[in-house]
Design a protein around this nucleic acid. Structure first.
Length: 237
DNA sequence: GCCCAGGTGGGTA
DNA sequence: TACCCACATGGG
């Protein structure tokens, strides 16, 4: 089966199994961008606590946040963990936002995708996943967000070689799917949902997987049968 | 007590 | 390049 069709089939299976995920939770593009930085190596629940603190004090706007002294910012980010690191990273992002986009997330969204992406990657503390999250979920650009779940899943499905890079994985999706932000949005969220429930790093082999038995932890990685034969194994029950 | 979470950057060999 | 580690809170 052609790769694009295979990726679409996987998407449909996930969607059928889990339904719409409603990503990214947030009341504004700016809140989403802040959340993208806060969620680095952190559970979303802890991110929500920090966002709630900022909201409760009316600080969740580019101007207010930028005006907040670094120490006060980091205190409010405590519940999200790695709070001193995140305060510095958030500050660096705000400096970029004001320097290049007049502090306006809407203007960031109007920029050309790859141009803004390169600029974001140059901001200390913003790596590829955070940049793509900001661009896709915050700015509505058709860029695919790759995370550990995504890499693990594609490797287990035999669509990526072991040790593939972030760029390899992103390119795989973007070269074989239409550049549809809504599709990319839901697809990534579904992969994370699937990963949390059934495609973990460790743990028992997943049962009744909506995808393929092969995405399960512990299944031999032979790399063979790259066509659709394995795709018929999973049934969304 | 341990591992993990919607990563990133710096250091070492 | 390939690992290893710090960052740090909160949940299972």
């Amino acid at each position: 089966m052609e790769l694009g069709s295979r990726l679409i089939e996987i998407y449909h299976r996930l969607y059928q199994a889990y339904g719409p995920q409603g990503w990214w939770p947030g009341e504004s593009p700016f809140e989403i961008m802040v959340g993208a930085i806060l969620t680095q190596n952190t559970s979303w629940r802890n991110v929500e606590r920090a966002l709630a603190r900022l909201k409760a004090e009316g600080l969740l706007s580019p101007e207010r946040l930028y005006a907040l002294p670094l120490e006060e910012l980091s205190e409010r980010l405590r519940p999200a963990g790695t709070y001193r690191v995140k305060a510095a990273r958030l500050r660096a992002f705000l400096e970029y936002l004001f320097r290049v986009h007049e502090g306006d997330p809407g203007r960031l969204a109007q920029g050309e995708l790859e141009t803004v992406r390169r600029a974001l990657l140059a901001v200390p503390g913003i790596g590829p996943e955070t940049a793509d999250s900001i661009l896709l979920y915050g700015a509505g650009h058709p860029t695919f967000v790759v995370d550990a779940y995504t890499m693990r899943l594609l490797e287990r499905l035999g669509l990526l070689p072991a040790g593939a890079s972030y760029a390899d994985c992103r390119t795989l999706f973007m070269a074989h799917l239409p550049p549809d932000p809504q599709l990319f949005n839901e697809y990534h969220a579904l992969i994370v949902r699937h990963g949390k429930e059934r495609c973990r790093k460790r743990g028992p082999r997943c049962s009744s997987c909506p995808l393929l038995d092969r995405c399960a932890y512990g299944v031999a990685q032979t790399g063979e049968e790259s066509d659709g034969s394995a795709g018929a194994v999973g049934t969304a029950r």
